[in-house]
Simulated scan of single mutants.
Amino acid sequence: MALFIRDPAVDALAEEVRRLTRAKTKTEAVRNALEKQLAQARRALPVRDRLARALALADAMGPSDPSVDMKAWTDAMWDDR
């Protein structure tokens, strides 16, 4: 879905960010600014919320296989160096 900037003040801000960051386009400047803002907002989340997200990702992976010897597997990875 396209994002149209209809507000002249917001358009001017996007252009200034583009110019100062040397982005090739306003789209690139807006994307970079939004990604940085999103990363900052995620870092500001309480540890409990960040941990809940990590635990949900781990749960989505499913249960671990108790027959896997992680030490042997890790040692084998390092022995190949």
Score class of each variant (00 low, 15 high):
M1K: 08
M1H: 06
A2F: 04
A2H: 05
L3H: 10
L3F: 12
F4T: 12
I5V: 15
R6A: 04
R6M: 06
R6F: 05
D7L: 02
D7E: 14
P8G: 00
A9E: 10
A9R: 02
A9F: 01
V10T: 14
V10R: 10
V10E: 03
D11Y: 00
D11T: 02
D11S: 03
D11K: 04
A12D: 10
A12V: 02
A12Q: 05
L13V: 08
L13E: 07
L13H: 01
E15M: 00
E15G: 06
E15K: 01
E15D: 11
E16K: 01
V17N: 04
R19S: 13
T21D: 11
R22T: 10
A23Q: 13
A23G: 11
A23C: 15
A23K: 10
K24Q: 13
T25K: 08
T25R: 04
T25A: 06
E28N: 07
E28V: 10
E28C: 01
E28D: 13
V30Q: 01
N32Y: 12
L34A: 14
L34Q: 04
L34W: 02
E35F: 05
E35D: 06
K36V: 09
K36D: 12
Q37C: 06
Q37N: 09
Q37V: 08
L38A: 14
L38D: 05
L38H: 03
L38K: 06
A39Q: 14
A39T: 04
A41N: 07
R42H: 04
R42Y: 09
R42W: 04
R42D: 07
R43Y: 05
A44F: 03
L45Y: 07
P46M: 08
V47D: 10
V47A: 15
V47S: 05
V47H: 08
V47F: 09
R48F: 04
R48A: 15
D49S: 06
L51H: 03
L51T: 12
A52F: 07
A52N: 09
A52Q: 15
A52S: 14
R53F: 07
R53L: 12
L55G: 02
L55A: 08
A56P: 03
A58G: 05
A58K: 08
A58N: 06
D59P: 00
D59I: 05
A60L: 12
M61G: 11
G62V: 08
G62D: 02
G62C: 07
G62N: 02
G62R: 05
P63V: 08
S64I: 06
S64A: 13
S64H: 06
P66R: 07
P66F: 10
S67Y: 04
S67R: 03
V68Y: 05
D69K: 02
M70I: 14
M70L: 15
K71I: 12
K71G: 00
A72E: 15
W73S: 07
T74N: 03
T74S: 09
A76G: 13
A76K: 11
A76M: 05
A76Y: 06
M77V: 12
M77N: 09
W78I: 13
W78R: 11
W78Y: 14
D79H: 10
D80G: 07
D80H: 07
D80C: 01
D80V: 11
D80A: 15
R81P: 00
R81Y: 13
